[in-house]
Nucleic acid binder design. Structure first.
Length: 488
RNA sequence: GGUCUCGUGGCCGAGAGGCUAGGCAGAGGUCUGCAAAACCUCGUACAGCGGUUCGAGUCCGCUCGAGACCUCCA
């Protein structure tokens, strides 16, 4: 079993800490989910896969995890300074749809992508629009505490006042004085006392299609409110883990801390975990730079930047090959390499199932297993886990070639290690084989015919069979044990 | 401009004061009728310049370069 001490890098303290849940064996984890106004791109896959890994591992080592990942369907404005149109509302207007039609459409597509990536469903997936009452209630508390002010039906958080009693910027390492100097002067924020104050509630323009009644105006909640309200609603006033992309550190998560601190009298989150960005040509992949590639594009290959289609499992493998706190640079070559590596891993897993145990073991499977746990316990170091698994690949192939040996116990243990780490924890599985049982039988028959040709030294025929099969993407591999086949 | 992060061999990426990361690509070899696969061997990688140290990719300083956040962004 695992080394009990799981170490987690906490953004708040800037160091790795031993993870100790508030109410073991229960763990509460909240992760910022997508704003559903467009298809998910590769960048969206990073936090999804990262926290799926965290979720899976925590469960594996025995915790009972309640994983909350929200859907942002209101309140996320497309412009700066809390001005501009709501992202969902704009998309609805452009497409002549109800906002909730937009939300439903992209939520469904997001779910589909997540399923393709083998990302487990969270325990609860709350929507911002379904928690307006909770958000209003929290805003009311913030106002009662005296840290928010109303102007023309909109409510803003008073960051400067908050800064007198608490430390605004502690998560992102920002200082209010610097913010005062450096926050850009932007249009249309005359309502705010300070440019870095953020909206808790926005009065709706008359033509705004999404709005709800509140004590202050008919309007909608500010973006940061939803996570504070929904996180504490489902996980309690204090919960263990809050995750999200590094780009959400400021101001989103900083605002969350301020809101909770004031509304509840204390902070809510014990461990902040942030995944780094995926870059393309060294630059962050994102909507604003318009350099993003959607997941569906990857799966279909229909993007000029892609040389070919890449399967969801290859994308997942690619993401897991880097540590979640490092940037990960996308390129065709990198993906191609990932694809080859992934196939090698899966092929070895297949080989493992047919391996025969010997009398003695020449390899130390136990320490290999321990190394995998050590890596996971060291802040979810999936690339090191994969490196260890590739060591195992070499062992498997060597045993298969008769160069190494494994006794029955070690063989079982190795199978367990593969099942646990590859399937359960890393969430990798072989590609969905389109080849039916029928096709397999057909190919097996052809292989038999080829074997007969080879035995008769009729290499012309045997090569013809191999070449023709290769043309339709079926590769034959001869070994001492016989001939196997796989799709190219 | 402010705050912060990073710079590892052809590519992607771990690690981290003395102990092989790993994958992909490349070279040579074994096996095989041939090929593929597999296995074995190989490349004097740690941006540059100083410093600390018995010893530095790993710590400190400076220089150069890249990026993130400061505005919506996973």
């Amino acid at each position: 079993m695992a080394d009990p001490s799981l170490n987690v890098y906490n953004t708040l303290t800037h160091r790795k800490e031993i993870f100790e849940p508030l109410h073991a064996p229960f763990v509460g984890m909240y992760v910022c989910g997508p704003t559903v106004y467009g298809d998910a791109h590769l960048g969206h896959a990073r936090p999804a896969v990262t926290f799926d890994l965290v979720f899976r591992y925590l469960k594996h080592i025995g915790f009972r995890v309640r994983y909350v990942r929200n859907i942002t369907d209101v309140g996320h404005l497309e412009n700066d300074a809390d001005e501009g149109e709501d992202k969902i509302a704009k998309k609805a207007r452009l497409d002549k749809l109800e906002p909730m039609e937009v939300v439903q459409y992209y939520t469904d597509r997001y779910h589909q992508n997540m399923e393709q990536l083998n990302v487990l469903r969270p325990s609860i997936e709350p929507r911002a629009s379904g928690h307006i009452i909770e958000q209003i209630e929290m805003i009311r508390k913030i106002m009662q505490a005296g840290f928010a002010y109303e102007v023309n039906g909109s409510v803003y958080f008073d960051v400067e006042k908050y800064g007198h009693s608490y430390e605004y910027g502690k998560l992102s390492g920002r200082v209010i004085d610097d913010l005062l100097i450096n926050t850009r002067a932007l249009e249309g924020q005359d309502e705010k006392k300070n440019p870095f104050d953020f909206a808790l509630w926005k009065k709706a323009h008359p033509d705004h299609i999404m709005h709800w009644p509140s004590p202050w105006s008919i309007g909608f909640p500010g973006w940061h409110m939803e996570c504070s309200a929904m996180g504490t609603k489902y996980l309690g006033d204090i919960f263990d883990i809050h995750g999200g992309g590094m780009d959400l550190l400021f101001p989103h998560h900083e605002a969350e801390i301020a809101q909770s601190t004031v509304a509840l009298g204390h902070e809510s989150v014990r461990y902040w975990i942030h995944n780094n960005m995926i870059t393309i040509n060294g630059q962050k992949m994102g909507k604003s730079l318009n350099n993003f590639i959607t997941l569906n594009d990857f799966f279909s290959g229909s993007n000029p930047l892609l040389e070919k289609a890449y399967s969801p499992m290859v994308i997942r493998f690619f993401i897991l090959q880097a540590h979640y706190r490092s940037t990960l640079d996308f390129s065709n070559d990198a993906l191609l390499a990932a694809e080859k590596g992934f196939k090698r891993l899966m092929a070895a897993q297949q080989t493992l199932q047919n391996l025969r145990a010997g009398e003695v073991s020449t390899c130390d499977i136990k320490s290999l297993q321990q190394a995998c746990y050590d890596a996971m316990n060291d802040d979810f170091n999936s690339p090191v886990v994969l490196a260890k698994l590739f060591d195992a690949v070499r062992i498997i192939n060597s045993v298969n070639d008769g160069l190494e040996g494994l006794n029955a116990d070690d063989l079982e243990l190795l199978k367990t290690v593969f099942r646990v780490f590859i399937q359960e924890i890393l969430g990798l599985h072989p590609e969905e084989g389109e080849e039916s049982e029928l096709i397999d039988k057909l190919v097996q028959t052809i292989i038999t015919l080829r074997r007969q040709a080879r035995e008769a030294k009729d290499f012309k025929t045997s090569d013809l069979i191999r070449d023709e099969l290769k043309k339709i993407g079926i590769v034959l591999k001869d070994s001492r044990e016989g001939t196997s086949w796989e799709k190219e």
